[in-house]
Amino acid sequence: MNNGALITAENLVKQYPIGGRKFTALNDVNLTVQKGEFLGLVGPSGSGKTTLLNIIGALDYPTSGSAIVIGTDTKELSHRESARLRNEHLGFIFQTYNLLPVYTVFENVEFPLLLLGMDTEDRKKAVMGILDRVGLADRAASRPSQLSGGESQRVAVARAMVKKPKVVLADEPTANLDAENSHNVLQMMAKLNEEFQSTFIFATHDEKVIGYLRRKITLNDGRVAEDIETTPQYN
């Protein structure tokens, strides 16, 4: 284990039963992630990117090996403890934004803070602050259906970042966006990464995303095929 690492995966194996056989999604994965990294899990479909992201996010358990996230072995966590870990330290960004359609932009971003039990005034301040950072303060009262794809993903980023999480997990965040919106969202995430020192982990095969990464971990058939430092092409 690397001392001071935010995330450590050791001999991580994940198998799924499929039709009486076992499909190995992750096979002996070892990696460490430090605070403030901006890294990507890249690889073709079925390479294990999302599975690894789920295990890091305490949404799934490894079959063997361990995933230590912020000092906690996720395998040892109960459902309630996993939820607390996600609530306090992790932020999620999804491919399809997954904003709650019946709530306004403000309420969508406010939701993680409600779970944290933050008081009303602090909540309002935090929500409006992050909406301002993503350039959507004037859309606080809008419903998700009234937003464009780019705006929706910016709200999703605001929702993930409003509690200033230690780790942000983003699964194909630009898959539903055009090039211009992809760059806008990625630039915004890179900026927030620098400001908040939150660690960003992407699961992606989008070259635009890869162009922003400072570290690229390539997965192939559930194994780490390559783990390299990269120089971002975009700023």
Binding site: A83, R86, F92, N98, L100, F111, P112, L115
Partner: peptide, 13 residues
């Protein structure tokens, strides 16, 4: 919606 709520940190219970 359930998935988002769980991912954000709400417990199943």
């Amino acid at each position: 919606e359930m998935g988002v709520r769980l991912a954000i940190g709400e417990s199943k219970g």
